[in-house]
Amino acid sequence: MADAQCACGALRLTFSEPPQLTALCHCFACQRRTGAPFSANAFYSVECVEIFGAATEFVRTGDSGRKVRMYFCPICGSTVYWKAVASPSWIGVGVGCFADPAFAPPSVSVFEQSKHEWVKLGEAVEHFQGRPTGRE
């Protein structure tokens, strides 16, 4: 399994299990976090993640209205991982932090209410206008 890391390599995560979910998010908070029209995210059980290096925490409110604790490298500023207050057993990691073109494709696409019109996704992903109900 590949490691995830920031741009400078000072903040790194290792994993003992594959992701439980890979998802795209089109919410405005993710657009601002990534500087891209959507984010690609992998979610892991917190028990399988080991974190190396210092991280600075920033707490934000997502489009769902729920708090998210974002962790970024204090040297290069890359946001590498986050923990949603509503889902304490999961840790989210930016798929781009793996720099692995063979990474597992997304199975869901959320907050499509704010998806850019020119972004076209196939039917291989499950589509949600907002946050999927019944999922943490």
Results as ranks from 00 to 15, higher is better:
residue 2 A to I: 01
residue 2 A to P: 13
residue 2 A to Q: 12
residue 3 D to H: 00
residue 3 D to P: 01
residue 3 D to F: 00
residue 4 A to W: 00
residue 5 Q to R: 13
residue 5 Q to T: 11
residue 6 C to M: 03
residue 7 A to G: 04
residue 7 A to D: 07
residue 9 G to K: 02
residue 10 A to E: 09
residue 11 L to D: 06
residue 13 L to E: 00
residue 14 T to G: 01
residue 15 F to Q: 06
residue 15 F to S: 08
residue 16 S to Q: 07
residue 16 S to M: 03
residue 17 E to C: 02
residue 19 P to D: 01
residue 19 P to T: 01
residue 19 P to I: 01
residue 21 L to C: 01
residue 22 T to C: 13
residue 22 T to E: 04
residue 24 L to W: 00
residue 25 C to F: 02
residue 25 C to Y: 04
residue 26 H to I: 04
residue 26 H to Q: 07
residue 27 C to G: 03
residue 27 C to F: 07
residue 28 F to W: 12
residue 29 A to S: 13
residue 29 A to I: 05
residue 30 C to D: 09
residue 31 Q to R: 15
residue 31 Q to Y: 12
residue 32 R to C: 01
residue 33 R to T: 14
residue 35 G to H: 03
residue 36 A to T: 15
residue 36 A to C: 13
residue 37 P to S: 10
residue 37 P to K: 02
residue 37 P to Q: 06
residue 40 A to E: 15
residue 42 A to R: 05
residue 42 A to Q: 11
residue 43 F to L: 14
residue 43 F to T: 02
residue 45 S to M: 00
residue 46 V to T: 12
residue 46 V to M: 11
residue 47 E to W: 00
residue 48 C to Y: 00
residue 49 V to L: 04
residue 49 V to T: 03
residue 49 V to M: 04
residue 49 V to R: 03
residue 49 V to H: 05
residue 51 I to F: 06
residue 51 I to H: 03
residue 54 A to T: 08
residue 54 A to L: 06
residue 55 A to T: 05
residue 57 E to H: 03
residue 57 E to D: 06
residue 58 F to R: 10
residue 59 V to S: 13
residue 59 V to W: 00
residue 59 V to I: 12
residue 62 G to T: 09
residue 62 G to E: 08
residue 63 D to Y: 04
residue 64 S to W: 10
residue 64 S to P: 02
residue 64 S to A: 09
residue 66 R to V: 12
residue 67 K to W: 02
residue 69 R to V: 08
residue 69 R to S: 15
residue 70 M to V: 12
residue 70 M to D: 12
residue 70 M to R: 11
residue 71 Y to E: 10
residue 71 Y to V: 01
residue 73 C to D: 10
residue 75 I to L: 11
residue 76 C to Q: 07
residue 76 C to S: 07
residue 79 T to Q: 07
residue 80 V to E: 13
residue 81 Y to Q: 08
residue 81 Y to T: 02
residue 82 W to P: 01
residue 83 K to M: 15
residue 85 V to Y: 09
residue 85 V to E: 15
residue 85 V to L: 15
residue 87 S to I: 07
residue 87 S to L: 09
residue 88 P to A: 06
residue 89 S to L: 11
residue 90 W to E: 14
residue 91 I to R: 06
residue 92 G to E: 15
residue 93 V to R: 01
residue 93 V to N: 03
residue 93 V to F: 07
residue 95 V to C: 10
residue 96 G to N: 06
residue 97 C to H: 06
residue 97 C to F: 04
residue 98 F to K: 04
residue 99 A to W: 11
residue 100 D to G: 08
residue 104 A to Y: 05
residue 104 A to S: 11
residue 105 P to W: 11
residue 106 P to G: 08
residue 107 S to M: 07
residue 107 S to P: 01
residue 108 V to N: 05
residue 108 V to F: 08
residue 108 V to Y: 02
residue 109 S to P: 03
residue 112 E to W: 08
residue 112 E to Q: 15
residue 113 Q to H: 14
residue 115 K to N: 14
residue 116 H to F: 12
residue 117 E to H: 09
residue 117 E to R: 03
residue 118 W to Y: 14
residue 118 W to A: 04
residue 118 W to F: 14
residue 119 V to L: 12
residue 120 K to H: 15
residue 121 L to V: 10
residue 121 L to C: 06
residue 121 L to K: 06
residue 125 V to L: 10
residue 125 V to G: 13
residue 126 E to H: 09
residue 127 H to A: 14
residue 127 H to Q: 11
residue 129 Q to S: 14
residue 129 Q to C: 04
residue 129 Q to D: 14
residue 133 T to C: 02
residue 134 G to M: 05
residue 135 R to V: 07
residue 135 R to M: 13
